[in-house]
Computed example of a mutant assay.
Amino acid sequence: MENQLIGALEAGGTKMVCATGYANGTIVEQTELPTTTPDETMGAVTSWFSKRDIKALGIGAFGPTAVNPSSPQYGKILETPKTAWRYFDILGTMQRALDVPCGYDTDVNVACLGECTFGCAQGLDNVVYLTIGTGVGAGVMVGGQLIHGMLHPEAGHILVTRDPTDPLKEGSGCPYHDSCLEGLIAGPAVKKRWGGKRASELADDGEAMSLMAGYLAQALMTYVLCYAPQRIVIGGGVADHTPIVALARAKAAELLNGYIATPEIEHIEKYIVNNSLAGRQGIMGCLALGAGALKA
């Protein structure tokens, strides 16, 4: 199996990242295709993979999506704001076009799997992976298994307490919630609050970073208390191009206030960390997912 070529599809709301590689995480080839209409996009994706002799495929899709194999909607996108994609069958489309074993999960779950298999969470079986970019998503592994309950974790939408100094007095960047984590620290909220600026442009603004880190710290405390992970890994454009992870780490320790006394919290700089795979954790996780489908 180690020498068999595996396909990896990171299906995002903006772009589709298609790659081939091996079970050991080696990426052979990679390309990006724009996400437009389902027919146009998936036609281009299936065409790309059909020209490569892959033996299995791992798919990490944007959500919400049905990831439980027992669900009648398994493999389909669900109630996404991208209305053209609602109930589109990504998994079925790829299986019919390629006729190879396929693994299917969310984009953040496969990023979590990538870090657990190849990155800074190797050897751990209880891990939270958080991505902060145009949205906030969470992948959660418990007992060595990615969580698939009635759906998948949507921990980017947990409610946080608004900072009274927040310049964003009304509404948020989330169309569903006025005070969820995504609505207050993801890209749309940053632009709405600071006149169209991107988070990277505010990296040296101490007040802005402190505000965002405060919201992130509240969420981190919740994840620590609810999931008891062995490590929390944070990626995404906002996290990668600002100091909010380090700032939120310190604020989270203050919020916990000594209640959790474990070696992990004692060495919190090694416990709450930036991602380790230079943006490749999603594709590498898809390779691991595809390798698992090949074994099944």
Rank of each mutant, 00 (worst) to 15 (best):
T14M: 01
T46W: 11
A261N: 15
S70G: 04
A250I: 00
R52Y: 10
D99P: 00
A84E: 15
G235C: 09
G235L: 07
V45G: 05
L159R: 06
R249A: 10
P164V: 13
L33W: 03
V142M: 14
K197I: 04
A217Y: 07
V100P: 07
V136R: 03
R249F: 03
Q230C: 05
T134N: 12
I244K: 01
L78D: 08
N24T: 06
E207W: 03
N275M: 11
G103D: 12
V142D: 02
P69I: 04
A84D: 15
Y215Q: 04
I268N: 03
T83P: 00
T46K: 11
R96F: 05
V224P: 01
A296N: 15
I54L: 06
Y104H: 09
G258Q: 07
V128Y: 06
G171F: 11
P34M: 01
I185S: 09
G285N: 06
F62G: 06
Q4G: 05
A23L: 14
T20D: 09
C112K: 05
T20R: 09
V142P: 04
T46F: 05
T134K: 09
P167W: 13
T117F: 04
I147W: 08
A291W: 08
A189W: 06
W48S: 06
E269G: 14
L247Q: 00
G92K: 04
C18W: 10
L151V: 12
C116D: 03
A199F: 03
A121P: 12
E115G: 06
G196W: 06
H157I: 05
Y129K: 00
G25I: 12
F62A: 02
Y176K: 12
K270S: 14
G195R: 13
L289Q: 05
Q4F: 06
Y176R: 12
T106K: 05
A288H: 07
T36A: 13
K82Y: 11
A138R: 02
C112I: 00
K192D: 05
M212Q: 13
D240R: 14
C226I: 11
L124Y: 11
L277R: 03
L124R: 14
G143R: 04
S276D: 03
M42Q: 09
M1W: 11
V28C: 13
I268G: 02
A253D: 12
M284D: 03
W48T: 03
Y271R: 01
